[in-house]
Each structure stands twice: as structure tokens, then as C-alpha cells.
């Protein structure tokens, strides 16, 4: 159970470029829910994810994960609760470590690093088995440098890494945005599969309304730092992209001109 209460966050407070990003945001996510998050640029989607993960600390409000108040914990202290896949494949993985070293880091996520070998046969067997599922041939390239992989491959591995340790919440921040359409589709399907198989509580930020409705069990729309739409269950099943777009326009109180961005 994830609880976000009355989050307030202002960037560059008391300066000419002051930006009030989160304005009393509330959100409750039940265990096992797959929430897709949409909203226009600057609505606070990424900021919300960064506040939940601890990369940013909110000015006020609470982040409660699994009954634990983590509002003031730094990102690395929350890593045992929160797994993440970043938008940029370069951020989610270490290019100059090998594939198996990256996986070993994730295999130990949220735990104290100790003076014991980072890799052992048991681990590499697990890694090989997990990589085989990706069907990218990476199971034979365990000791290749991560930097040799393509963006899509790195995102796929990044996804895999997020499942190596149990987490209370998986955060996906437009994790297919930097990929070409075909690869993006592959990574999305893989995401869906992994989330379902592991019954992960997930928040996925996306720019595409189609994706937002197609994947997941619940859709949340953010606008100006607040939740303006929250649909799930039957109501959501009936919802079409056009409906969503109308609601989106209504909340913005203006015509959305760049349809491609939203429908894509």
C-alpha cells in the first residue's frame, strides 16, 4: 500500500523562475495495482515519481510506503522498497560495468554491500535464466560491457534488474520514450508481462493515452500538481482515448493542439 498525502513542492522558491510543481497531491495505491500516469508537460508526473523514490524531497506532505513514513529518507534508503526504470537507458544501468555486474548490483538492491564476492555461480545461473526470457541472446553475453548494448536492450535489462529483488513499488518513468517505436513496443509488452507475472505494484508514467488505457488497471491524470482524473475498473474499460482527450482538454480549459504527442 502506497500513500501520498498533500505533497507540496516548489522549485526555485522565491526566485523569478519559481515553479510550484506539486500542489497538494494525494494518491492511494493498493497492493497489486498497475497505475498509469498521464498529464501534460509540467503536470508533475516525473516530479511525483522522483518524490516517491527519494530523488527529490517534498517541501511538505507525506510519502508512506508499506505503513512506513519515508518522506525524509534519501533515495538510497528507499531502494529496498522502490524499484525503478528510468527514461534514459544510460541512467538505469552502468555502461562500463558488465551485464552480470549490473545484475549483481540489482540483486543486492536495498541491502548492505559486504566484503564478499559480488558474483557467484548461483547468481550467474539465475541471471542466465532470467535473461533467456528476454530472448535477446544476452544470456550468452554475461561478461560483456553494458555499454555495448543498444538502448532497447539496456531498458530490457533494466526492467529485469527491477525484479531481482522484491519491492513494494515499481516506478517506470516514461521508460520507453527514448526508444524507437518497435523497441518501445517490445519493452512495453515485456513490462506488462513482468508486472503481471510478479504481481508488482506499479506506477508507469507515459505520454501516450493509448498506452495509458491499454496497460494497467488504473489511470491517473495529473494537472498542475494535482490528480484531476482517477479511473479504474469498469469505468476505465469503457473509456476511449477520445473520451480521455476530452477530459484532458476540459481540465486544461484549452484546445490540445499537439494530438500526435498524446495519441502516439
Amino acid at each position: 500500500m502506497i500513500k501520498v498525502e498533500e505533497l507540496q513542492l516548489t522549485f526555485n522558491a522565491n526566485t523569478p523562475i519559481e515553479n510550484h510543481v506539486l500542489r497538494g497531491l494525494n494518491l492511494n495505491i493498493k497492493e497489486g495495482e498497475f497505475v498509469t500516469v498521464i498529464g501534460s508537460n509540467g503536470a508533475g508526473k516525473s516530479t511525483l515519481l522522483n518524490v516517491i523514490s527519494g530523488d527529490l524531497i517534498a517541501d511538505s506532505g507525506y510519502v508512506i510506503i508499506n505503513e512506513k513514513d519515508v518522506s525524509h529518507l534519501p533515495a538510497w534508503r528507499r531502494a529496498g522498497l522502490v524499484a525503478r526504470v528510468f527514461q534514459d537507458p544510460m541512467v538505469g544501468t552502468c555502461g562500463n560495468l558488465t551485464i552480470q555486474e549490473n545484475l549483481a548490483l540489482a540483486y543486492n538492491r536495498g541491502k548492505r554491500s559486504r566484503l564478499i564476492p559480488a558474483l557467484n555461480h548461483k547468481m550467474t545461473d539465475i541471471f542466465r535464466e532470467k535473461l533467456r526470457v528476454l530472448d535477446l541472446g544476452l544470456e550468452n553475453r554475461l561478461s560483456d560491457m553494458m555499454g555495448l548494448l543498444s538502448g532497447g536492450q539496456r531498458q530490457a535489462v533494466s526492467l529485469l534488474m527491477s525484479t531481482l529483488q522484491p519491492s513494494k513499488l515499481l516506478l517506470l518513468d516514461e521508460h520507453t520514450a527514448a526508444l524507437d517505436p518497435k523497441t518501445a513496443q517490445f519493452v512495453l509488452e515485456l513490462t506488462n508481462q513482468i508486472v503481471k507475472e510478479n504481481k508488482l505494484t506499479t506506477m508507469m508514467v507515459t505520454h501516450s493515452m493509448k498506452q495509458a488505457l491499454h496497460y494497467g488497471t488504473r489511470t491517473v491524470m495529473l494537472h498542475q500538481g494535482r490528480v484531476v482524473l482517477d479511473v479504474s475498473g469498469e469505468e476505465r474499460q469503457k473509456l476511449t482515448v477520445a473520451d480521455l482527450l476530452t477530459k484532458f482538454e476540459k481540465t486544461r480549459g484549452e484546445e490540445v493542439t499537439d494530438d500526435t504527442l498524446l495519441l502516439g
Binding site: 533515495a75 538510497w76 552502468c94 548490483l105 559480488a118
Partner: peptide, 28 residues
């Protein structure tokens, strides 16, 4: 030997990608 331990790996990750290291729970 050290660089191939969990600590050593955490140190190398810190040097190359702090954000990723933090996301994996490393006190960078």
C-alpha cells in the same frame, strides 16, 4: 579482490553512475 566484492562493485557503480547507484540502494 576488493573491486570484485559487493563493496567494490558498489564503489565502481558510484563512480560511473551515481543516480543508478542510489536507485540500487548504495550510499554513494
Amino acid at each position: 579482490a576488493f573491486l570484485n566484492t559487493q563493496k567494490g562493485l558498489a564503489l565502481r557503480a558510484t563512480g560511473t553512475n551515481q543516480r543508478m547507484a542510489k536507485a540500487q540502494g548504495i550510499a554513494t
